[in-house]
């Protein structure tokens, strides 16, 4: 096990931070929640943040907190789609080339920042526990997601965020191959 300071990881994977904050901002706008300040990336801690107004309901909280997870995951998968095949399935590291390496770096960076931060998760949990209708599909999905994210945050100590990015990169090529 090796440790790299968090700020250094954020610097090395800054496209993922930008993407994550962009998605927060986008979903705040879509949920019609006022946004007061956005820092897409900065060298100091936290590496990016969004300050927004009061979130009216669980649906909006779900969009704002969980939205970046889906945006980063989908982007990670799509950007790396062609590069993941030679790199992971063919073991062809040479002809992956500079462009392929750029795809892989960008995909890993974006995939690593898919999970909500502690603050995101706290905000989301606050809405989940105060939700009145505990058995609505959204409430059940929200509880499931918040437990999953909590476990993922714990596992990030063991580089789970990077492992998740690699799994996402391999997912589409493997699924496609399974069906052809």
């Amino acid at each position: 096990m090796f440790f790299i300071p968090g700020f250094l990881i954020a610097w090395l994977t800054f496209p993922g931070v930008i993407c994550h904050e962009f998605a927060h901002r986008l979903f705040c706008d879509l949920a019609k929640v006022p946004v007061y300040k956005v820092v897409y990336f900065q060298l100091s801690n936290p590496s990016g943040y969004v300050i927004h107004g009061k979130v009216p309901d669980l649906k909006s909280a779900f969009l704002i907190s969980v939205g970046p997870f889906f945006v980063n995951t989908i982007l990670c998968s799509l950007i790396s789609f062609s590069a993941a095949i030679p790199f992971f399935l063919l073991g062809d590291y040479k002809s992956t080339g500079a462009f392929g390496m750029l795809q892989i770096w960008l995909a890993i960076s974006i995939g690593m920042h898919a999970f909500p931060s502690k603050q995101d998760l706290d905000n989301f949990l606050q809405k989940v526990v105060t939700e009145k209708n505990k058995f609505s599909p959204l409430s059940i999905a929200s509880r499931f997601m918040s437990v999953s994210f909590f476990l993922a945050r714990l596992a990030s100590f063991f580089w789970f965020d990077a492992i998740y990015a690699i799994i996402v990169m391999m997912f589409l090529p493997c699924v496609l191959l399974a069906f052809v």
Binding site: E21, L26, P34, V38, H52, V55, Q119, N123
Partner: peptide, 21 residues
Amino acid sequence: MCQSVPEGYDSQVLTPHDYPL
């Protein structure tokens, strides 16, 4: 990271969907 606006926070609301170049 994403946080709700703190008490007494004095700032303009940003125009929705208006992203820097």
